[in-house]
């Protein structure tokens, strides 16, 4: 996985002593700190990193796990059972990362825009509101629902939407159940080859059965659970941002515009988290 080793950011930085003083502003006592709109993580002024804003939009069919993915990434409890999202819910998470080359630290403010699929079809102000000025689009599919994967082609081909100005990432949910995956790894590989889009795989909830036979759903909110996913997502966002600014020439899987697909694709490997 050469592309991962030569990554843009330090993946294990959050465990280091240097990283801890930043992480402690967003994680306390093993729990994510929750910030309202008027609040910011408190970091000592001498080490205050540059703040970067990203608007991230989620697309995927109803029940695929949009809300749970956002809950995991922003440190909120995931819904216990499947509920439709009643409108647009946009949640905020902060995450610090350190660049490998320059050693510069960035604090990313990720704002996820999640809208219920059914409600968006009913009211026509919802899609435009999510689309407006989005920096990235996450396309979600579930490893245990083949149709959600097949839908991706349709969503990426959607002519009413213009994704050329956003970073595109596909997100596979319910990765813990990938042993009964309905999608082969070859299909995933081919899909990535065709679209040149990075893949992020997530497990949002742990389901455990108690002695009394109830299924208890727990959100995977531990630092070690979320850090790899957040790092990965932030890495793509930063790369995309730097390419746009001309600071970086190219980065595996990240495109600023739709390029022709005849590039040399020797280094194709599904990049699991």
């Amino acid at each position: 996985m050469s592309s991962v080793d030569e990554g843009l950011i330090l993946p294990d930085w959050y465990k280091s002593k240097d990283g801890k003083q930043y992480i402690s502003s967003v994680f306390k006592g093993g729990k994510r700190k929750i910030f309202g709109f008027l609040e910011r993580p408190a970091i000592a002024p001498q080490i205050t990193p540059e703040l970067k804003f990203f608007k991230i939009r989620l697309i995927g069919k109803s029940g695929v796990g949009k809300t749970s993915t956002v809950a995991k990434l922003t440190g909120q409890p995931a819904p216990r059972s499947h509920c439709e999202t009643p409108g647009i819910i946009s949640s905020v998470a902060y995450w610090p990362v350190k660049l490998k080359v320059t050693g510069k630290v960035f604090l990313l403010r990720l704002q996820f825009w999640d809208a219920g699929d059914n409600i968006a079809k009913k009211y026509d102000h919802i899609h435009p509101a999510c689309r407006e000025n989005a920096d990235a689009t996450l396309f979600l599919f579930s490893y245990v629902d083949r149709s959600s994967f097949l839908d991706l082609h349709k969503q990426l081909n959607d002519t009413t939407e213009d994704f050329s100005n956003t970073l595109r990432v596909i997100v596979g949910t319910k990765f813990d159940q990938s042993f009964r995956s309905e999608i082969t790894s070859k299909e995933l590989k081919d899909f990535q080859k065709q679209w040149k889009i990075p893949l992020l795989s997530v497990t949002n909830v742990h389901k455990t059965e108690t002695d009394s036979g109830h299924i208890v759903t727990e959100t995977c909110n531990d630092l070690n659970d979320v850090a790899p996913s957040l790092n990965r997502l932030c890495e793509y966002l930063l790369a995309y941002d730097m390419i746009k600014q001309g600071l970086l020439e190219d980065y595996p899987w990240v495109q600023t515009e739709v390029k022709p697909t005849e590039d040399d694709d020797s280094d194709l490997e599904a990049t699991y988290v």
Binding site: I34, F35, G36, F37, V70, A71, T74, G75, Q76, P86, G87, I88, I89, S90, S91, V92, A93, I119, K122, Y123, I126, A129
Partner: peptide, 15 residues
């Protein structure tokens, strides 16, 4: 109760 059901770091637009 609707407002109480929203995630605590969110802003929302609900019909």
């Amino acid at each position: 109760r609707l407002v109480r059901s929203l995630p605590k770091n969110s802003s929302s637009d609900i019909p």
